[in-house]
Design a protein around this nucleic acid. Structure first.
Lengths: 337, 337
DNA sequence: AGTACTCGTTACAACGTTGTACTGAATTCA
DNA sequence: TGAATTCAGTACAACGTTGTAACGAGTACT
């Protein structure tokens, strides 16, 4: 069986509470008592029972991180950052895979998952604003969607600026027909389209709707399929800006298979800076959100929200940084004209 | 505050225990009482407090899945499978990232992580046999290393056969100089080398130690670096068998950058069947362990072990299936000679 | 009619922890 | 020297749940 406070107390000839005080570093303990107890703790290998502690104080020290798909590298990388950040604050992270399912996301936002979590960081995919209506049962931080501003704390990056910078980079290579893959109904996509248009406008390049085809899921397969369609246009693109790296890798594969050179014939930029992109051939230019900072902000906001339970508190918006990382898929280019 | 059994009991005018019996589906409840209580439960939105339940019965319904690095696609894919499998058994999975650190792995094997987990599925990287000596505090299932057979339940695949099949496939393409990347001191690597040698012997091809260079971590970077060294050999390889897909993708990148064609000049096979390999250019031939089956076996063994706490029970070895998946990196080949 | 059994329900205690209120001793102050 | 204050440590209760034992009311058997 497990060692309990009581076992330690008996062996050290003190009360249970004194041992508890030592464990929790309460100041009301004499130095020699403390060291004696400390020693017995190590001898017996005592570890506090978290369930009992939770039962007593209403906290588990566990937060959930819910993502649409753990196999999407961006999310697994983000999960690693969140876990690392939480560990620093001695909090445990439970990874939850929603499958991008709206109901699952909604359930999590309402705190319907296990009752043993103190709060949730949720990266929504299908969630609608209305699904947050009944929320508030559990402290919640949302990632990535500016749309929910008034409903909950959230952490975003400046998608408009990021997309603008990436597009500007492609324009500065002399490209005129810059396609976009990933411009779908999601708020994130919409933001990035705005940045894309802004950059085009600033360079006096007209926006061609043909270059912004409808997209499905953000997978390599979609990227490949959409790229194939783009290549069939009477006037195909000379650059592609994909709204995530997976789309870009899929598109890249089609371009290479079709015999085109990257970046000479078509330049490619992605979004997310996943590890795969760094090792692709050619390596992928991409917008790199500061995942470490996102994780830190999300955990900080969540713990704040957990600690101060006052319900009236206004939702907070935190913005993390990003950076355009230029790699072979755009850089080896000789500017034309 | 949260709804408690007591609240439900008061509203339904029964005792707390009766509500508990309804919640737990105990048969000793009259049908009309049951439905009345059921209704109040839904009305109030009661959810059991897992910590209290655990405190009472010594189980949390949480198992941990510890991997060396969640960003390695093989592990994140496996994690998804484990989570899915556990969900079916209404068990929650806590993902633990050991960083491949021997101490962290050892700590987990001894059950030193949070005291709130019922058991651990551990995919070890640096763990030594001796580290398992003090184990047994927590039910444990190991993945992948046949080495620990007598110390703990474990799930493996037939690495020898898998490596033999992959090597045979390369040999049947007419390749004679088949390099191996990933033949390091780890038990898994050793097993695969055995299969590799068996296949060579069966085809009467001599094994050249130069074609089995020392390897470091199983990353794209290592794959790339080792491939570069292999290309500098006086007689470079005409095929490469990498012991994981990341190594293969790194090697592939170097080959393409050096102007060689895959598979015409050099054929490549990997191991793990991660998603990246399916979308690489060219797509990667690989050994696909049956991840779903691995997850199912691991969860089953672990729950078994948790339920029957008798300490005398012998460790179980379970073997999951695998399959050689042939893709472009070896198949478009015209057999030479 | 009395005993034995079954059934549905209940009261109580306990899981391991910690906050509150308390105690007794040592120390400080007037 | 007596009163107030500080300090170290303790006893008790409670968090929400469930296993055990016990209960009274029927029902079945003799």
């Amino acid at each position: 069986m497990d060692v309990r406070l009581r076992d330690v107390a008996e062996r050290a000839a003190v009360s249970v509470k004194t041992v508890s005080n030592v464990v929790n570093g309460s100041p009301r303990v004499a130095p020699d008592t403390r060291s004696r107890v400390q020693q017995v703790i190590e001898e017996l290998g005592y570890r506090p029972n978290l369930s009992a502690r939770h039962l007593r104080q209403g906290r588990t020290g566990i937060i959930a991180f819910a993502v649409p798909d753990l196999n999407v590298p961006y999310f697994s990388e983000l999960a690693s950052s969140v876990i690392a950040e939480a560990k620093q604050r001695s909090v445990t992270v439970l990874i939850e895979d929603t499958g991008g399912d709206r109901e699952a996301e909604s359930a999590i936002a309402q705190g319907l998952s296990s009752s043993l979590i103190d709060g949730v960081i949720l990266s929504p995919l299908a969630l609608r604003r209305a699904d947050l209506a009944g929320a508030g049962r559990v402290p919640l931080v949302l990632l990535g969607e500016r749309d929910y501003a008034k409903a909950s704390d959230h952490v975003v990056i400046d998608n408009v600026a990021a997309a603008r910078e990436a597009t500007a980079h492609l324009l500065e290579l002399g490209r005129k027909r810059i396609a976009v893959i990933g411009a779908d109904r999601q708020e994130t996509g919409r933001q990035r389209v705005i940045g894309y248009r802004e950059a085009l406008a600033a360079h006096g390049v007209p926006a061609d709707p043909e270059l912004m085809p409808v997209t499905g899921e953000f997978t390599r397969a979609t990227g490949a399929e959409v790229m194939r369609r783009l290549l069939e246009l009477p006037e195909p693109p000379d650059a592609v800006f994909c709204f995530n790296d997976l789309l870009a890798l899929g598109a890249q594969r089609v371009l290479l298979a079709s015999g085109r050179r990257i970046p000479e014939d078509v330049a490619i930029a992605g979004f997310d800076d996943i590890e795969d992109g760094r090792y692709a051939t050619p390596s992928l230019t991409t917008v790199a959100p500061d995942k470490t900072q996102i994780a830190r902000l999300a955990v900080t906001l969540l713990l704040d929200r957990i600690e101060t339970a006052e319900p009236g508190r206004q939702p907070v918006l935190a913005q993390a940084g990003h950076e355009l990382v230029i790699r072979e898929s755009t850089s080896a280019d000789r500017t034309k004209e």
